[in-house]
């Protein structure tokens, strides 16, 4: 039910969904402008570049997951709700993932082609992004929860959360690179899946605790 609420909130303001995608597109366009249009060069940096942009757009949006609810008092009600906070938080972050990470993963083939990523690796890119951004949403939720009570949380959240994103970045790019070079990407996707399970198990707990602190402060 909460998931449906969050999703319809997102859909009623489509610009919020569109923004990360446009951001993604703009930064992708920056790479050739900064590095040069040589296609081999672009193909070489493509996996890393796409993953770093995904990281940033997930980071930029995660700040807003709880903010509007904090501002209008809904968050207080959520904490008092009879259902376990763990599940509510999971629903919020799941909604966040669907409108940012999953959507990004689904449109990423377009950007992959723009950066001249070999077509063979596109499938792996989509799967790795879908798995990885879910971890990013869950980890980002912790930072969002801890900083939601602060007036200027935006910069702080990147300082808190970006170091924790590193394993996802490493294995996400590794998966794509493996696919580019023709070796099996399965192990890396499995590692991303393992991280996702860990993040599902522990992330919402930390997020819930963070929300209680932010409400209390």
């Amino acid at each position: 039910m909460l998931l449906r609420r969050q999703l319809s909130l997102a859909i009623r303001r489509p610009i919020e969904i569109g923004n990360p995608l446009v951001f993604f597109a703009i930064v992708v366009a920056m790479f050739p402008l900064g590095i040069g249009p040589a296609s081999e060069q672009l193909a070489m940096i493509a996996p890393g570049a796409i993953w770093i942009i995904a990281l940033l757009s997930s980071l930029l949006t995660s700040d807003s997951v709880f903010r509007s609810d904090f501002d209008d008092g809904s968050l207080e009600q959520l904490l008092l709700a009879p259902q376990p906070l763990y599940l509510s938080v999971l629903a919020y972050l799941c909604a966040h993932w669907i409108v940012t990470g999953l959507l990004l993963a689904l449109v990423s083939p377009v950007f992959a082609l723009m950066l001249n990523l070999p077509a063979a690796a596109v499938g792996t890119l989509v799967v790795s992004l879908a798995l990885g951004t879910a971890v990013l949403s869950l980890v980002g939720g912790i930072g969002a929860a801890l900083t939601v009570g602060l007036k200027r949380g935006g910069m702080l959240i990147s300082l808190l959360i970006l170091p924790l994103y590193i394993p996802v970045l490493i294995f996400g790019t590794a998966a794509v690179q493996a696919a580019v070079s023709g070796s099996p990407a399965g192990p890396f996707l499995a590692l991303l899946g393992a991280m996702l399970s860990l993040a599902i198990a522990l992330g919402p707990l930390a997020t819930a605790a963070g929300l209680r602190i932010s409400i209390d402060a």
Partner: peptide, 10 residues
């Protein structure tokens, strides 16, 4: 308390 949670996550 916020830092405690962050350091545990870390």
């Amino acid at each position: 308390r916020a830092c405690a949670i962050l350091s545990l996550v870390g």
